[in-house]
């Protein structure tokens, strides 16, 4: 069964870039570009790794993160957060909510790919 990444992002060009990067590596990439029903999308798709943007139409990535962490199904889901704001307090906030990794845009393709792989491996190692 192929590894699935759910990408929650609203910038078309970034979606295209990440999709290209991950699909080339053998991932199944599912896209969701709205904030408000992102949690439903996660539960529906049940991805191995979630890549979540902060500034989303409808709902902020932080709120989505908090909801996911308080849900028993998704509380251990590897979540990689992306932000273009790059402020330390955003990082702290995300960490306090239990983010798996926090990454500032722009990122290098290797960094992104490596992190998604790491998160997947780390979660797969767990019993």
């Amino acid at each position: 069964m192929s590894k699935t990444v759910l990408l929650v992002e609203d910038e078309p060009n970034i979606i295209e870039a990440i999709s290209f990067l991950l699909e080339r590596d053998g991932w199944t990439v599912r896209i969701h570009s709205q904030g408000d029903d992102a949690v439903d999308a996660v539960l529906r798709v049940a991805p191995d790794v979630l890549v979540l943007d902060v500034m989303l139409p409808g709902r902020s990535g932080f709120d989505i993160l908090r909801d996911l962490r308080s849900n028993t199904v998704t509380k251990d889901l590897p979540i990689l957060m992306l932000t273009a704001r790059g402020q330390t307090k955003d990082r702290e906030l995300a960490e306090s909510y239990g983010v798996s990794h926090f990454m500032t845009k722009p990122f290098s393709n290797d960094e992104m790919l490596g992190k998604v792989r790491d998160l997947y491996t780390a979660s797969a190692d767990k019993p």
Binding site: E11, N13, I14, E16, A17, I18, F20, L21, M55, A84, R85, G86, Q87, T104, K105, P106, F107, S108, N109, D110
Partner: peptide, 24 residues
């Protein structure tokens, strides 16, 4: 500043990513 950062970094992200693909 946060907004400006966001507005600058967002296009930069696409530019960096695609330019890396091209370089590869």
């Amino acid at each position: 500043l946060s907004q400006v950062s966001h507005e600058l970094r967002t296009p930069m992200t696409s530019i960096r990513s695609f330019s890396e693909f091209l370089m590869e």
